[in-house]
């Protein structure tokens, strides 16, 4: 039998898993991550470190900035990439997603359809990055970890995600349809 016809291959590697199994696995892995690193999961704070390290390579001095003078950030950029648990977990996310795509043999380099996509991606990325810094996290650090630790800020974040998604959908229909 070809592996493509194997029902277990189809069920486990080819077809998407249900939202429920995804949620349960995410919750269990999050417990493991919190227990092993002692820090609530976050994704975007390491990006600010990556930016700082790149800027340093180019000759900049990010240590003098207010943000990187905060104790936790200062220690993290001094310790380097492999000592920052969430930088490493981000790397794991990228490799894990890549592996899952390869195992399902769905890897494809997609073409850019229009300049509108490029402009929207750049504006969207800048807004998300800026928003994630001023709200102390993204939908992982602020929402997922916030709600999981019974913090009010996670719930406030959730309400405004809906507001943002509503406005975003209207813009999407207006400019991309």
């Amino acid at each position: 039998m070809k592996i493509q016809d194997n029902p277990y291959y189809k069920k486990l590697l080819k077809d998407p898993w249900s939202y429920t199994s995804g949620a349960v696995i995410l919750a269990l892995l999050n417990i493991g991550l919190l227990a092993s690193t002692g820090k609530a999961w976050g994704v975007t704070t390491p990006f600010s470190y990556w930016g700082a390290w790149i800027y340093k390579v180019l000759g900049g001095n990010p240590e003098s900035w207010f943000y990187f003078q905060q104790k936790a950030h200062a220690e993290a950029i001094k310790a380097g990439f492999w000592m920052d648990a969430h930088s490493v977990s981000n790397l794991g996310i990228i490799f894990g997603a890549f592996l899952a795509t390869l195992l399902a043999s769905q890897f494809k380099i997609k073409k850019i359809k229009s300049w509108k996509q490029v402009v929207a991606a750049i504006i969207g990325g800048l807004l998300m990055g800026y928003g994630a810094r001023i709200s102390f996290g993204c939908n992982i650090g602020a929402l997922f970890s916030g709600v999981a630790s019974m913090s009010l800020h996670g719930w406030v974040f959730m309400i405004f995600i809906f507001v943002g998604a509503f406005i975003g959908s209207k813009l999407l229909v207006k400019y991309f349809m």
């Binding site: 997609k110 073409k111 359809k113 996509q117 959908s169 999407l172 991309f176 349809m177």
Partner: peptide, 15 residues
């Protein structure tokens, strides 16, 4: 819809 991300393919199909 090649190169389009959600929810554009669905919206275009519906239309």
């Amino acid at each position: 819809c090649l190169g389009e991300a959600c929810p554009v393919p669905l919206l275009k199909t519906q239309k």
